[in-house]
Amino acid sequence: MLRSLLFLPGNNPNMLINAGTLGADAVIFDLEDAVSPDEKDAARILVRNTMKYMNLEACEVIVRINSVDTSFWMEDINALLPYKPLVFLLPKTNCKDDVLKVCGYLSECEKKLEAEEGTAFVMPLIETAQGVENAFDIASCSKRIKALFLGAEDLTADLGSKRTKDGREIEYARSRLVVAARAAGVDVFDTPFTDVNDDEGILDDALLAKNLGFSGKASISPRHVSAINRVFSPSSEEIEYAYEVMMAIKEAKEQGKGAIALRGKMIDAPIVQRAEKTIAMAKALGIRGDENE
């Protein structure tokens, strides 16, 4: 389960070597924007060796390759596919053809490596107006797609709008991506909050993303990771309520009751579904075990 996704520059050995200790559920080794063209090859080698030799324990690895309109992306995949990143993050995905191009190349590479086809996954990074409008097509075009990812910095540049802290300029894009991803049955991750010194702002921004339906949130600073994890983890009240719901359902079944109420509200299927999800999440995070069951 991914709540926090932390970008780390692919050309910074000190950050790469500490990747597993920064508290993020996943790190995104960045070969794109963080790395200048003349350092692409060095960064690729550093990232490859980090994935080859370092044990990042519970921390998952995502690699942001270069976009399909550059000459670097295929070399990125060649170098890193053998080390099985959780997903490849595909920057500047405008349409499903961009995704299918990468997926086709992944199939070729998997054959060469004699790996099972379709075992490498991708996460399109939606950061253009065209990408937002094509979000559902993109999210549903391949079984390799695990999630969508919103990139607000490039998007606002493309929209000609000013990027602000409260994010009103990306309200539409956020909602559009959540709807598209959920309709396609994949996860969706929110853009980083870029003021690394604003400890309150990150909490508000993460909470907004959670309430909109995002699965988790990216960060460009390790300082934001714990806030994101906190917001995207179920609270003790939510867990308590989820167990109460499940208990009420169990009792109702035992008593042969059809409709049930809890705390003065009717419990219907979506509430039960949410409660199950909360309990599963709490268990996965080791917050609460079976003691309430």
Binding site: T21, L22, S221, P222
Partner: peptide, 11 residues
Amino acid sequence: TRDPVGLVMAS
């Protein structure tokens, strides 16, 4: 410190 590793340790 603003060093991420230092902050992890401090936390």
